[in-house]
Design a binder for these strands. Structure first.
Lengths: 193, 193
DNA sequence: CATATTTTGGAATGATCGATCAAGAATAAC
DNA sequence: GTTATTCTTGATCGATCATTCCAAAATATG
């Protein structure tokens, strides 16, 4: 019950996310963040803690605001496989549309920090697992609805799709052409037939 | 023609590679490198240049000493698809056997540096392209030898395999189980049938 | 042995890193 | 209006960053 913040913490977090997404964890300095978030040291440390804590909050925001909503289209009632197809094409379209080709913050973080920052990495692993489970749920439903041949295993396919999605992110970051990316994604989806 | 180096530049480069592979570019300090390579500042800068140049030399070594030899098994005469299968299983086995799960230095570097260090990233893109071309060569041969149905397109399949391989690296770094990784790789390979 | 050349070892550079702190400004509660 | 509390601002901390530089040590050549 005193002086109110002059900034919107959520907007500031959004700005921080953009920076981490672009430069990764290690290459992003507090200086970079202060400038992008347009606030001063005291406010940043008071509100978000140190760099590590801020990053974890950013990851959390990324999952709930960015990834979550997109995955939610996977458990809408109705035909499952078309929804899956649309989801993947949407993901690819989004990643290709980003002029900076920043890929996926989760994948980026796994690749950058997994071998030497185990605590942060664990959060990433959990996020990827959630994606796999979303695929699994959809594929199970597809099978129940007769969209998937009975001999197909939803868990295996879910893992395959997750792997393929991560690989696609890598290729996009590596500068692959839209045509190449879409082609290989189409090829991957023929697995479901 | 004077005092000879007290260290083996190639061994030193190997040590440097291990560090970069483990911690990535940004998180690796010259201090880390000096300790691992067991030489002093002067020798390092004299022999390898600055951090950036050293890293490029490391990448070069990684490609010629690590990746190159493994890809060379793809253009041995004989049945093509079994060789491909063996190559992929070998790659997965190697990545899983690494206790640190460091993945692939090329993929790591693409993911860490592509959006904000374009010059280094270009080298990585070229390396990935070479991998794709190796797959393409093998698949073309497979088609010629009747191991691949005539309606399959080697270029598309090569891109698909490259994507899948990169995705597998991500999953391994993310801590996926050996079983999950092998399963989804097997699934991917059914594309060739 | 003498000399030219190179490596070695480490001091030292300025820049930047993440993080802390204190003092002043602003506002809610009383 | 006073007071208590919170936020803002910027100076500042020690540590570490990548890099440079030079004197001492070592060796090949003449």
């Amino acid at each position: 019950m005193a002086r109110p913040k002059e900034f919107n913490p959520d907007e500031a977090l959004e700005k921080a996310m953009q920076v981490f997404w672009h430069k990764g964890y290690e290459a992003t300095s507090m200086e970079d963040l202060l400038e992008a978030m347009d606030l001063n040291r005291g406010s940043l440390y008071d509100t978000f803690g140190d760099k590590r804590q801020l990053f974890l909050k950013v990851i959390d925001r990324y999952c709930t605001c960015f990834v979550g909503p997109k995955f939610s289209m996977l458990d809408q009632p109705g035909p499952a496989l078309p929804a899956l197809r649309q989801f993947i094409q949407g993901m690819i379209g989004g990643a290709l549309a980003d002029p900076q080709r920043r890929g996926c913050l989760i994948a980026n973080t796994v690749m950058e920090l997994a071998p030497h920052k185990h605590d942060i990495a664990r959060t990433m692993t959990r996020a990827l697992k959630m994606g796999e489970d979303a695929f699994f749920g959809l594929l199970t439903r597809a099978k129940r609805q007769g969209e998937l041949k009975p001999d197909k295993d939803p868990r295996t396919l879910a893992r395959f799709l997750t792997t393929m999605m991560q690989g696609t992110i890598v290729m996009i970051k590596a500068g692959a052409s839209a045509e190449a990316v879409r082609q290989s994604a189409e090829t991957a989806l023929t697995i479901l037939d």
